[in-house]
Design a binder for these strands. Sequence first.
DNA 1: CTGAAAGCGCTAACAG
DNA 2: CTGTTAGCGCTTTCAG
Lengths: 338, 338
Amino acid sequence: MRMKATIHDVSRLSGVSTATVSRAFSSPDQVKEATRRKVYEAASALNYSPNAIARDMVLQRTNRVAYIICKKHATILDEFYAGICEGIMRRANALNLQLIISTADDWQKMAANAQSKQIEGVILGGDAEAELINDFQSRGISIVLVNNRAAGMELPCVLADERDGIRQAVDHLITLGHKRIAMVLGRFSPYIVRERYTGFIEAMKRHGLTVGSQDIAMCERDIESATEAAEKLLFRPERPTAVVGGNDVIAAGVMKAARRLNISVPKALSVTGFDDSSICSMLEPELTSMRVDVQRMGESCVDILKDTMEGKSQAAGAVMIPTRLIKRGTCQEVGQNG
Amino acid sequence: MRMKATIHDVSRLSGVSTATVSRAFSSPDQVKEATRRKVYEAASALNYSPNAIARDMVLQRTNRVAYIICKKHATILDEFYAGICEGIMRRANALNLQLIISTADDWQKMAANAQSKQIEGVILGGDAEAELINDFQSRGISIVLVNNRAAGMELPCVLADERDGIRQAVDHLITLGHKRIAMVLGRFSPYIVRERYTGFIEAMKRHGLTVGSQDIAMCERDIESATEAAEKLLFRPERPTAVVGGNDVIAAGVMKAARRLNISVPKALSVTGFDDSSICSMLEPELTSMRVDVQRMGESCVDILKDTMEGKSQAAGAVMIPTRLIKRGTCQEVGQNG
DNA sequence: CTGAAAGCGCTAACAG
DNA sequence: CTGTTAGCGCTTTCAG
């Protein structure tokens, strides 16, 4: 493969100056139709296409943004973050932004070189450490948080309406007559845990229901852990008639526990999930869950990021993406044991 | 935020030439300890870090690679491709490569500018069109295929050992005494369909078992479609005692169909999945499946890509990632109905 | 509308 | 070891 053609080659072959070639590509309306045509012909004969690096260099901009997932293990393997990623990707492509993807760990490991990655904006997914945020801020890089809210700092962020989601789940259960409602919560990021926890307490309180410490179980993020936690919860004689799962995986664990204890879902126990992930329709019965439009969340991130990069909107507020109850087969009126 | 410091600023403040500053950063061993220290001091005082774009320009290389998923709908939302993506990402970061992610559709839509994306290598996931491949080839961009094999072209590719995986599943079933074994296959990429299909026929033949056209059902990729297809398969009086699912989602559909028809899994029907995805352990009973180390597949892609980019290995062969049976709860000896 | 020329920030010979 | 110098490929005044 021979050297790539440059603007000079095109200039020579078409008999116009490099400046004109440049204009023909970056602002076609500034060059006469005929000239333009000549340039394009020469260009395609030479198989020329502008070198983006050279352009970026003189323009002093890169149109490059990064999506950094701040999470320990599975990152894009986590369906939730994958969904956000998909939204970010699609929107970034549509806006002609280059998207770089990384994890917080990897990113910081590369710190030495990372400084020169020349990104102009960054979307931080999950529980971003203050240090990381500060680093970007000090380098003048635009930031958007997703699924997290940095306490104290005025950063734009996009969030699912977690609290309202939990409220909808609780309301649904209460409408069905449930009173003894428990929650099993996974060790998600602090922000998420707080929101879902608070949302639960608030929603219960609103109906005059108090929740004791034995009504909320904590577990890890995996299904085994959730199953164990749920088993304890369901083993008590005065066991709940419904449990809201911290997310769909946790809810699957609850269902598994119920099966082991021979408690029929939904006849003897109602359960709800959160995220409306793909597993909902694979479970039996299918899992009632809260839909959150993760792809839209991702798209919003990019839009906001672009705005702040261009200095358009300084609105450092939170964008709330609504959440919606998807009724499936795991909830039933209390006491309908037949 | 004021202008970023350049190499000249550092040169001035530290009293050495720009060349030395450059060396201090890119080949520290070529500059005297004392000088180096001076440079670093000046640099950090100015908050300087080398501009990667300028460097890339003069070096005529970008260290930038792309992962393009050639698939219609869910892309990284597909757990399988997400796993590959995770592997690619981790390895790319470790090797200091910049990773750009896109879908085939988006990529081609951006064609005009994409030419200038300055990527040096590309990993094509799934069913890449010949046109796309040719385009990259003609531009001298290194290519690695993953989960696909381009007929006729000598391109390096990394694949899971699909055929052997299916063979293991079939062997397992046969060892358990099954003889009437059916398959439900989803509309995956042509390559995958062919491999799994052929693998099935071959494995059965090896045991002297013939498979008729009614023993293989095709369906879409979603669970509803799989459920329908399986229902038909299981409704026959001479129904199979085992079915191997084209992947885990399909297998979940088979299980769902069995439940509807009141056929107990695994007592009256054994089923196997493929991919060993996260849903296996959420199903009841837990799904026996074939583990394929997708992350390792992703990592291999990057390693191979880097080698070909550097002209090291012209070995345009296929790298086969082995596959392993994970026994869980959905398979049982035939006829053990109690 | 087009051309000449001056860089963007960095690296790589080539001398010293 | 270090400095000088000549670009990498493109855009952009500023004149014509």
